[in-house]
Design a protein around this nucleic acid. Structure first.
Lengths: 217, 217
DNA sequence: ACCTGAACACCGTTCAAGT
DNA sequence: ACCTGAACACCGTTCAAGT
């Protein structure tokens, strides 16, 4: 869309200062270091040692650049295979793998969702999930519901946990709020006053969901 | 934090051009119209008919302004009561109500999560959920898991659905990708090639999750 | 107490011009 | 084909100064 291919001219030219791929790589590094807000065309140009306007020639504009990064991540989600013997275990292994991959791209994952690319991102794992759900005996719309429910659950969980466990002290923290007043069930209140163990909560909730979805009603 | 209270001087002064609350209200309207990215201090000032720097006197800076809006929304989440006879139905009514409230603030909800205010936002509904879960016979850590699992599920679902169903045509859409190749289960493939019905998916997945969580293992 | 304009250091993007 | 600087219209924020 940016580079129009003209008829090949054989005149010798000096090597390009940057390539399209170099721009994408530098942008990825910048985002990893400073977050999406830290990605600016000018910083990018400075890092690559070229004028800002060179960036525009290679990638169009900032919007298109980010779109490209999103596409790269979407295409990197192909390799997810189920393990385990029974259907529940196999679906759980897919869910866990999905969460692991998503957490490896903490900055990109939010972008993917913001741009409505979530369905595309999920396609490969969706095939795997569909296959497991089918072999668990579900079919048609009910199977589709199960597949999507697991997907929504996993990405939703990752989106929430990304921001929930990050800041060590909130104002006010759920802990102090729970401990401040008398509760009916002291043990429950105490448990809710404890910081969230995301790994355990994911395991518990996902297993409950998957088991319920795969059980014929 | 912004306004230091000095000893009351009784000298007559002309009425303030804007109030802190007027700034917050204008900011809310601006966000509703143009999204969070559309909120700029300069637009705000222009709308209120004052210099940009007046805004700073009232609310500190942009960060503090957004924080204030988040707090307003967090405090507006108190009124959620369970309905229904059995525990499952009552928890489901809370989950549904929670989703409804969250969807009424489409722009703020993402902000709340970004700022790690999710636990604070959930406190009121957390009490209600805890009460229902307790009366379903769960206690201690297991009850706490159930409460949190429902919370994560609901907010995660809302975060995902906000961006998934918005753009009518994606490139490539999940539909065409599914229809493009032969699948093992034609009915499943057909169902997955249909656009997501968010209301139904929420009902199905939430009921499955809640039922599994409340059932003693 | 409340508001102002000037100034600074940033942005993304377009354009005409170079080689 | 690829890169450049100048220019435009935006930002958030600080500061000294007004009343």
């Amino acid at each position: 869309m940016t580079q129009e291919t003209a008829k090949p001219v054989r005149a010798p030219r000096r090597a390009p200062a940057v390539s399209r791929q170099a721009v994408l790589d530098a942008a990825t590094r910048l985002i990893e270091e400073q977050g999406v807000a830290g990605l600016s065309m000018r910083k990018l140009a400075a890092r690559l040692g070229v004028a800002v306007t060179s960036i525009y020639w290679h990638v169009g504009n900032r919007e298109a650049l980010v779109d490209e990064l999103v596409q790269e991540m979407v295409h990197g989600l192909d390799t997810l295979a189920a393990t385990g013997s029974d259907p529940v275990a196999r679906v759980l292994s897919l869910a866990t793998g999905l969460r692991r991959v998503l957490r490896e791209h903490p900055h990109l994952i939010g972008l993917v969702n913001e741009r409505g690319m979530t369905p595309a991102m999920f396609l490969p794992s969706q095939r795997a999930l569909a296959s497991e759900v089918a072999s668990a005996g579900l079919a048609g719309p009910r199977a589709a519901d199960a597949v999507r429910a697991v997907q929504y659950h996993v990405i939703g969980f990752v989106l929430v946990e990304r921001h929930t466990d990050r800041s060590p002290e909130q104002r006010p923290s759920a802990e102090e709020l729970w401990l401040a007043e008398p509760a009916a069930d002291a043990a429950l209140a105490g448990a809710l006053a404890t910081p969230v163990d995301a790994d355990r909560l994911f395991a518990v909730s996902t297993e409950a969901l998957v088991r319920a979805l795969l059980t014929k009603q």
